[in-house]
Simulated scan of single mutants.
Amino acid sequence: MEKINVIRFVGVLLVGLFILNPCVSYSTFTAWEGPGCDFAGIVYMGCDCFSMDYHGAFDFIFEGQPVHLFDDDNWVGNPHTTLSVNTTDCNHGFGWKSLIIPC
Rank of each mutant, 00 (worst) to 15 (best):
F62M: 01
F50S: 07
F9S: 13
H55S: 10
S84D: 09
G46M: 03
M52S: 02
N78M: 11
R8Q: 10
W96Q: 08
C103Y: 06
S25E: 13
C49W: 08
D48M: 04
M1I: 04
G77I: 09
R8A: 13
F60Y: 08
V85P: 02
A57Q: 03
V12P: 07
F58W: 05
I4Q: 12
C47G: 00
W32M: 02
G77Y: 14
D72G: 07
D59Q: 13
H55Y: 10
M1F: 15
D59V: 04
I19E: 07
D71F: 07
Y44R: 03
Y26A: 07
F29K: 05
T81P: 05
K97R: 12
I100N: 02
D73T: 08
S51I: 11
D89A: 01
N21H: 15
V67E: 04
V12D: 11
F39W: 14
I7T: 11
V6F: 14
N78H: 10
G41N: 11
G41L: 02
L17S: 10
T82K: 02
I7V: 15
K97E: 09
C103W: 03
A40G: 07
E63Y: 14
F58I: 02
L17F: 11
N86V: 01
E2H: 13
G16A: 11
I19Y: 14
K97C: 11
C49D: 08
F9C: 14
D53R: 12
Y44Q: 02
I19G: 06
N21C: 13
E33H: 04
P66R: 02
G36C: 01
L83K: 01
F39L: 04
E2Q: 06
D71R: 14
V67H: 00
T28C: 05
C23Q: 15
L13S: 15
N74H: 06
G34S: 00
E2F: 08
W96H: 06
D53H: 05
T88I: 12
R8F: 08
G56A: 00
D89Y: 01
Y26H: 13
A40T: 13
S98V: 00
T82I: 05
F18T: 12
A40Y: 15
G56I: 01
G11W: 07
I101K: 00
F70R: 01
E2N: 04
N78C: 13
T87Y: 01
T88L: 14
T87N: 15
G36Y: 04
G93D: 00
F62S: 00
